[in-house]
Each structure stands twice: as C-alpha cells, then as structure tokens.
Simulated scan of single mutants.
Amino acid sequence: MCPGLTPTAAEWLDQDLDSPRTLTGHPIRHRYRRPGEPDVWPQADVTLVAPATTNTINRIALGLTDTWVAGFVAEGIGKRIPIALMPCVNATYAEHPQLPLSLATLSTAGVRVLYGPGGFQPNPPGEKWPYPWDAALDAIEDL
C-alpha cells in the first residue's frame, strides 16, 4: 500500500507524514516529483481514492491535474489500472449539479464509484457519520 494525499490533507497531517511510511514502507506522495527524481512507488495494481472530496472528484473527472492525486488517478485511468473511488461529501455539496456529472464521467471511464447504497451516502452538513471503509476495502479486493 502506498498512501497519497491532496495538498490540503498533507497540510493537515504535516507533523505526522512519516507514520504512514513506517506502516507501509512507502513515503506519502502529495506533490509531483521534480524532473530527474526517481519514482518512489512501485507500479500500482489497484487504486483507492477515498475519502474523495467534491473538489478532488471534479478535478479528476474534468482532467484538471494540478494536484498530484488528480494527476495520479487521471494517469491510472489512462493506464487502465483498476480504480475505486468513494466520495465523502455532505448533502449540500451532493446537490451541486456537477457532482453527479463527474461521478458518471468517472464511472464511464471505468472507475468503480462507491456512492449511494452500499457505498458512501451524503451526511447533513456539519454532522459526522462513520465513513464506510469496509465498503472501500471490499471494492479494491474485488478489483
């Protein structure tokens, strides 16, 4: 397992970016590597994008690869790497008309989208519900 983060998530975990490396044996990626830098990860067999925010989902679906995570997933789609994506959006964001379009685009591209019954179901704004990690992990086992 190789953990990757958006820039915001990396900022949140700023003080603890080495813990996942200890657990997985691989560094966290959260930025593009510089020209000439070696790739520190092996080729992916499967990719899980979770918890995926509205921002990340829309970036990937629209091909906006200005963040490392969006670029990694967009490239994975092109390489035909099996990908599962499970959102984490509140019910207000879920009402935005772009979200269902982005989820449909990703599904059409071969991404297994875990949204709705059996996956993530939006919660009311400000309320925290348990994230269905079991469904996400089961999906990558199936892939």
Score class of each variant (00 low, 15 high):
Pro130His: 09
Gln121Asp: 04
Glu127Ala: 14
Trp129Thr: 14
Leu99Phe: 11
Ala104Glu: 07
Ala61His: 07
His96Gln: 14
Pro130Met: 10
Val113Asp: 13
Pro82Ser: 03
Val113Cys: 05
Thr56Ile: 09
Met86Ala: 01
Leu106Lys: 06
Leu103Gln: 14
Trp129Val: 13
Leu103His: 08
Pro97Lys: 06
Gly119Pro: 08
Gly71Thr: 08
Ile83Pro: 05
Ala94Asn: 05
Pro130Lys: 08
Pro82Val: 00
Asp66Trp: 01
Gly110Asn: 00
Ala61Tyr: 09
Trp129Leu: 14
Ile81Ser: 02
Ala61Glu: 00
Gly126Pro: 08
Ala135Phe: 04
Arg112Ser: 12
Ala70Cys: 12
Asp66Ala: 02
Pro125Gln: 01
Val111Phe: 06
Thr56Val: 15
Arg80Cys: 00
Gln121Pro: 01
Pro132Lys: 04
Gly76Glu: 05
Thr92Cys: 13
Phe120Pro: 06
Leu99Trp: 07
Pro124Trp: 02
Leu137Cys: 01
Leu103Ser: 13
Trp133Phe: 03
Trp68Ser: 08
Val113Ile: 12
Leu101Lys: 09
Phe72Arg: 13
Arg112Gly: 05
Leu62Ile: 04
Ile57Asn: 12
Ala84Gln: 11
Val73Cys: 01
Ala91Asp: 15
Asn58Pro: 06
Thr105His: 03
Lys79Tyr: 07
Pro100Met: 01
Val73Lys: 06
Lys79Ser: 11
Leu106Trp: 04
Tyr93Gln: 15
Pro122Arg: 05
Arg59Trp: 07
Asn123Val: 13
Leu101Ile: 14
Pro97Leu: 10
Cys88Ser: 14
Leu62Trp: 04
Ser107Tyr: 03
Glu127Trp: 07
Asp66Lys: 00
Gly118Trp: 04
Ala136Gly: 09
Ile83Thr: 00
Pro125Leu: 10
Ile57Leu: 11
Leu137Lys: 07
Val89Thr: 06
Val73Gln: 03
Ala135Thr: 09
Pro100Arg: 00
Gly119Trp: 04
Pro100Tyr: 13
Leu114Gln: 11
Gly118Gln: 10
His96Tyr: 13
Leu137Glu: 07
Thr108Arg: 14
Pro117Val: 03
Leu106Phe: 07
Trp68His: 07
His96Cys: 12
Pro97Phe: 15
Pro82Gly: 05
Leu85Tyr: 00
Gly71Asn: 13
Leu85Lys: 02
Val89Ser: 00
Gly118Pro: 10
Met86Trp: 07
Ile83Gly: 03
Leu103Cys: 11
Pro97Met: 09
Pro122Cys: 08
Thr108Tyr: 05
Arg59Lys: 15
Ala84Ser: 15
Ala61Asn: 01
Cys88Val: 14
Thr67Ser: 15
Ile77Asn: 02
Pro130Val: 11
Asn123Leu: 11
Asn90Trp: 07
Leu103Asp: 09
Asp66Phe: 02
Glu127Asp: 12
